[in-house]
Design a protein around this nucleic acid. Structure first.
Lengths: 224, 224
DNA sequence: CATTTTACATGTAAAATCTATGTAAAATCC
DNA sequence: GGATTTTACATAGATTTTACATGTAAAATG
């Protein structure tokens, strides 16, 4: 989900439309107030933020986002009209991940959105594991799908964590039993399969992120 | 080591100076020719690439880099003078990791360099087997031909891995049955041949990398 | 020497067989 | 009582077998 905060209605509509037609979920807001009230409902995977806004300006909103633990890591792309504004965000010291100068082409915007998302999906410094719409926070012991919490049991959580910590790498059932269960097992067991099933079920739309590699084991994020 | 390809001497000097004074090793080149001849000596950890260059342009250089297995994974940041979105989009889609529009602030550039390097350090190689356009990653259990994933079954994968791990060495059918299948077989079986066939088929253009050595067995990379 | 024959080796499509996985439901463990 | 594991079975998909076509080196023949 991408949020766009922009006071000019026609630009806002244009951006939201462009994002949607490029396969993103998107939502527009005219000012910081609207935006923050929605933010409580669902944390987006990216925010497009105009600098000049009625009420609280973009820079201030950005600081707000960065100071809240829940939104600290949400990538932000700033939209700037003047090059004087541009100066404020250059150096990226304000903590924006990228910026686009108006007037901008739609395709340029989409490209930058993609680039920033690609980056943010890979970087996991504060421990939060991210994979598309699927987030796992080891410290908080919380998993969310599209921003909504999913309640997992201990084994389910550990299993998912193990896979997400090793994005792209296939784990055999034996290896999983060893790392997640601590077994040093011999013989048959369908335990892993059953847990994968419940996981997939609980993760809903994100369930298919767990790939089966036939004859080998399971993997998450094969294309990375 | 960071390489910077930029025809404008003063900009090039500036960039190299800025990088060096920020603790990076850096080297500048005025065109693709200089750059490529140096590339044979040492593969850099990052390349800064101007789009407009005399001779081969930046986009073409980028494609070159990406098509060579040795440099495929080197991160590239594009430098562009025109902000026309054409340049930017083609830059991103041809596989650049980021791009910076001139005129840019030195600190912005350094920030981006740091960000890209941070990213790339995480995803460093893991026993990936390479043979021309054919790549096999044992950990991820993924095979790509010209960068596109090819889905192999377990036996196909193991067979290919066995051959690629022993580049240039001929394997008899018996030996293959022993290593890949674990059989200690006597008697006739066409199993290997059938699997070689499906492999060759699935690998498409790279199928002919698997050579038949008549009367002996199969081999990959006979000329190495 | 050129060619034909012979004897196998290999390629290939399709059928037959086998097995890994998904899944529901029961049993067992904290 | 929920979490976890075991059991049991159906089935998609992988693997192997079969049967025949084609390729090829070397011997036999003209």
């Amino acid at each position: 989900m991408i949020y766009c905060v922009e006071d000019d209605g026609s630009i806002r509509e244009l951006i939201v439309y462009a994002l949607k037609s490029n396969g993103f979920d998107a939502m527009g807001f005219a000012d910081g107030k609207e935006f923050f009230s929605r933010l409580k409902e669902q944390t987006p995977s990216l925010v497009l933020l105009d600098i000049m806004l009625p009420g609280e300006d973009g820079i201030s909103i950005l600081r707000h986002l960065r100071s809240n633990p829940d939104t600290r890591k949400v990538p932000v792309i700033m939209l700037t009209a003047k090059s004087s504004e541009f100066d404020k965000v250059t150096g990226l010291d304000s903590g924006a991940d990228d910026y686009v100068t108006k007037p901008f082409g739609v395709m340029e915007l989409i490209s930058r959105v993609r680039a920033v998302l690609r980056r943010s999906e890979q970087s996991y410094d504060s421990g939060e594991l991210v994979m598309d719409q699927l987030h796992l926070n080891p410290q908080k012991h919380i998993v969310t799908v599209k921003g909504k919490e999913v309640v997992l049991t201990f084994k389910e959580f550990e299993l998912l964590k193990c896979l997400m910590e090793n994005k792209g790498i296939v784990f055999t059932r034996d290896k999983l039993l060893e790392t997640v269960w601590g077994y040093d097992f011999e013989g048959e067991t369908r335990t892993v399969d059953v847990h994968v099933r419940t996981l997939r079920q609980k993760l809903g739309e994100c369930g298919n992120l767990i790939e089966t590699v036939r004859g080998v084991g399971y993997r998450i994020g094969g294309n990375q």
